[in-house]
Design a protein around this nucleic acid. Structure first.
Length: 854
RNA sequence: GCCCGCGUGGUGGAAUGGUAGACACAGGGGACUUAAAAUCCCCAGCCCCUGGUGGCGUGCGAGUUCGAGUCUCGCCGCGGGCACCA
């Protein structure tokens, strides 16, 4: 008998699918549609094992839905703009375009042998002018509807390289290349008005029944609806034009504990003082050092500068509070000014102790020991739902929860004309400008006479120039000799193009819609979008839980407003599954400047839990980190495919680990998966040739078969791929040991092939053919379990005594509770433990368990 | 620092609040073989023990419950996100 030979059968069946156009998505009215999408990859150059896991999951769903009679749309593309292409150009002198397209070619070449049921005819890359031209058209439509605007915002500025840095390029507050201390600098940038949709994006989460609760929670927290008080302090002898400082607080109940006012270094008042005083200017320059991330701001040493200006407390005009400029207050949040209540905020307390400011408690616990914050150095911040005793309040009762006090404080302030209660959101508008080359050009023109003018749609796409260099830092579009030159679309005078390009999140915020009509002359084709949208099942990494998904939800709304998507697609993803990441240790050493250098796993030899390079240098091992190109800890699946075949790789990434959980990659186990597939192949080949007569073991085998259909179907439906595979192992074992006749075995083996076909499609086709199945297994209807074959006549009930298992009895499945109780009480172990007494309680859970309480 | 997860044998993991460890990997033993490979069969949480109807056991500590891996609270450890990595 011949052997399982994936190298021979895999190309064969891929050619068969190609010829039959099995996976081409076709619109037709006779069938329901199903759109399954995995988050498209960045073309880093090689696929890694995380991709294989991600796309295999999607493929299982796609093939399963095809077998269930759906028209399936399962496309693939590339998220192709972004920094790594420019970094590669800087490092090795090529062009980002060449680097990107060559990477795409390589990756497609690596993906095709995996046998994914994809409609490759719909493939595109976001750096295709055809795609980004339509993205520019969307931008112009958004601009017309008032969904885009310009304002100032801070960026990371490298003062040595004279360039804007991404957060990733800021390491410990310093530029990654120059090592210079990074500054926060303001630039005029384009923004999407996502904040207008804060309330809607928050409320609509409730309707996303098939999204993971944790993702909805993360998004809700990110949007961050808060109820608070906005009011103004009046200044004592403030500079002219600054007689008021507007603040927003979510804790107005602590206003009587205020001890200072803090303003951002970019607050208009700070700006004004900066012009007057060198000391202030010096402080503000220092306060602007460091990166822009929230994390950097939170962790940075809190610095303040006493402006000498004071404000009056709104409820006691004799009470004056100092105004500090503070580095941890960002102009982008709220009003750029806060009041500090050290007793009930740790950051404010740290600040107060540093600058010797008073600490006034406004409430204390109802009972128990309480060290006052001014003594302990620990702010008292109980949950807002907890009742506390108020010691410095306005007019509410002595005992109240934080929530009650906040509402009371807002009411009191409104009644006394001090500000008003407002609902605010944490979500900020989405800054889309990037000072980089390899992105979608923002299609506007700057005209001396007309100002900012949108490019005409007939002139789209505004193409990136090819003749650029990356030998010096900065945006090549800025220094291109001619690219900027154009005429004003409005007045025809000579004008200059915008040189900023779009954030790559824009590219990935609508690709799912473009897949429904990838070559339409408009961003979408409404008839196609109407049919294929929404994405029925979206699959991707948990790392995209907030930004990508939130931006896409906003884009879908904006596209609906502009007539590019139907109203039903305002929420574009009906169901979401977040797969866990494939992690791998990072191996790092430090260079002469103390900056990390990352090494590939294949360059590291492991001995006694320590890692060494070939030259003997020991490397630091950082366990279990997200696989990331920049950390060199990616695992290449190509070798596994070459050695064992695609089906082994697919089977292996689905087995063992639950899909939503992170999995630490280990090479061991691929061989075992391969052995099992070989066993299935041999078993099918053997059964195909058997002519054994029927036996009384036929029925037990068929019962096992129906159980397998039921369990595997449930597993696939609920993304329990690892559980489904465990059932398939069990069913294979049962089939292999069964002494049933050839007909029953053939029937069972065909079902085994079908149940395996979404996971190991090539092997399944081959077995199907050997077993005399008709046509392609990919098109065969999914088997159905017969409910009558699933029920057993008797059940085994474990008997617990006081919650501990002490025995078991076998009873007819539908034996009455009373009868079960009677039999349990005669059970040897129970009789012994009862010692002649009566049980205190007897709990019978029908079909599950019995618990005797003595 | 803030938000969200995760933690079960040597390993990956299974388990609608109901027999903890299914299924597999690695390991041990055996069959077949001149031998090996391949294949097949058996064993296997930890501890004590000749034997069990024994003790312990799901990161740690409490709690709710007839019953907790699962629910609640508090810790510890690890991971993801924090708006310019994608």
């Amino acid at each position: 008998m011949s052997r399982y030979d994936p190298a021979a059968i895999e190309p064969k069946w891929q050619a068969a699918w190609e010829e039959a156009q099995t996976f081409k998505a076709v619109r037709s009215d006779d069938k329901p549609k199903y759109y399954v999408l995995e988050m498209f990859p960045y073309p880093s150059g090689r696929i890694h094992i995380g991709h294989v896991r991600n796309y295999t999951m999607g493929d299982v769903i796609a093939r399963y839905k095809l077998s269930n009679g759906f028209n399936v749309l399962h496309p693939m593309g590339f998220d192709a703009f972004g920094m790594p292409a420019e970094n590669a150009a800087m490092a090795s002198g090529g062009h980002p375009k060449d680097w990107t397209y060559s990477n795409i070619e390589t990756m497609v070449g690596q993906m095709k042998p995996l046998g994914f049921g994809l409609d490759w005819s719909r493939m595109f890359a976001t750096c295709d002018p055809e795609y980004y031209g339509q993205q520019q058209a969307l931008f112009l439509d958004f601009l017309e509807k008032g969904l885009v605007y310009r304002k100032n915002a801070v960026v990371n500025w490298d003062p040595v390289d004279m360039t804007v840095l991404a957060n990733e390029q800021v390491i410990d507050g310093k530029g990654w290349r120059s090592g210079a201390e990074v500054e926060r600098r303001e630039l005029t940038q384009w923004f999407f008005k996502i904040s207008d949709y804060s309330a809607e994006l928050l409320e609509a989460l409730d309707g996303l029944d098939d999204w993971p609760a944790k993702v909805k929670l993360m998004q809700a927290n990110w949007i961050g609806q808060s109820r608070g008080l906005q009011f103004a302090f009046s200044t004592v002898d403030g500079p002219s034009g600054f007689d008021r400082i507007e603040v927003y607080t979510t804790r107005p109940d602590t206003l009587m504990g205020a001890s200072f006012v803090g303003i951002s270094p970019d607050h208009p008042l700070a700006r004004a003082l900066e012009r007057e005083s060198e000391d202030v200017a010096e402080f503000c320059a220092r306060a602007r050092k460091g990166g822009t991330t929230e994390e950097a701001l939170e962790k940075a040493e809190k610095l303040g500068f006493d402006t000498g200006i004071t404000v009056r407390h709104p409820f006691d005009t004799a009470w004056e509070l100092p105004v500090y400029i503070a580095n941890f207050i960002l102009m982008d949040y709220g009003t750029g000014a806060i009041f500090g209540c050290p007793a009930h905020d740790q950051r404010d307390l740290d600040f107060a102790r540093k600058y010797d400011l008073p600490v006034l408690s406004t409430f204390v616990p109802l009972s128990g020991e309480h060290a006052l914050p001014e003594d302990s150095g620990i702010a008292y911040v109980p949950p807002k739902s907890e009742k506390v005793r108020w010691t410095r309040a306005f007019d509410w009762t002595e005992e109240a929860t934080g929530d009650e006090a906040i509402e009371a404080a807002i009411g009191f302030c409104e009644k006394n004309g001090v500000g008003q209660g407002v609902t605010k959101f944490r979500l900020r508008d989405w800054g889309l400008s990037r000072q980089r080359y390899w992105g979608c050009p923002i299609p506007v023109v700057h005209c001396a006479a007309c100002g900012v003018v949108p490019e005409k749609k007939e002139n789209l796409p505004v193409r990136l120039p090819d003749d650029v260099t990356f030998d010096v830092p900065g945006n090549p579009l800025d220094r291109h000799p001619t690219w900027r030159d154009c005429t004003c679309p409005k007045c025809g005078a000579p004008a200059k193009r915008e040189t900023d390009t779009m954030d790559t999140f824009v590219d990935s915020s609508w690709y799912f819609a473009r897949f429904t009509a990838p070559h339409a002359a408009t961003p979408t084709d409404m008839a196609e979008a109407e049919y294929w949208m929404n994405v029925d099942q979206y699959i991707g990494g948990i790392e995209h839980a907030i930004l990508h998904l939130l931006y896409s939800r906003f884009f879908a709304r904006a596209m609906n407003i502009c007539g590019h998507l139907p109203a039903k697609s305002r929420e574009p993803f009906d169901a979401l599954f977040t797969q866990g990441m494939v992690t791998h240790a990072i191996y790092q050493t430090k260079d002469a400047n103390g900056r990390p250098v990352y090494h590939y796993p294949e360059d590291v030899e492991l001995r006694d839990g320590k890692g060494f390079l070939k030259d003997g240098t020991e490397v630091e091992i950082i366990p279990s980190a997200k696989m990331s190109k920049s950390k060199n800890n990616v695992v290449d699946p190509v070798k596994i495919i070459e050695t064992y075949g695609a089906d082994t790789a697919r089977w292996f990434v689905l087995s063992d680990s639950p899909p939503e959980r992170d999995v630490e990659w280990t090479a061991a186990g691929a061989e075992a998966a391969n052995r099992h597939l070989g066993r299935v192949w041999r078993l099918c080949a053997e059964i195909a040739e058997s002519d054994a007569p029927s036996t009384n073991e036929d029925e037990p085998l068929l019962r096992e078969m129906h159980k397998a259909i039921h369990d595997v179907t449930m597993g696939v439906d609920s993304f329990g791929f690892n559980a489904a595979i465990a059932k398939l192992y069990a069913f294979t074992n049962a089939l292999s040991k069964s002494r049933a006749g050839a007909d029953a075995k053939r029937q069972a083996a065909r079902v085994l092939a079908q149940l395996m076909s979404p996971m190991t499609p090539h092997l399944a086709e081959d077995c199907w053919q050997m077993l005399g199945g008709e046509g392609l297994i990919a098109n065969a209807p999914w088997p159905k379990a017969d409910p009558a074959m699933l029920v057993e006549d008797t059940v085994v009930l474990p008997i617990q005594v006081n919650g501990k298992r002490r025995g078991e009895i076998e009873v007819p499945r539908d034996l009455s509770k009373e009868e079960v109780e009677k039999r349990v009480l005669t059970h040897e172990a129970v009789v012994k433990l009862l010692e002649g007494g009566q049980p205190k309680k007897l709990i019978v859970v029908p079909g599950r368990i019995v618990n005797v309480v003595v």
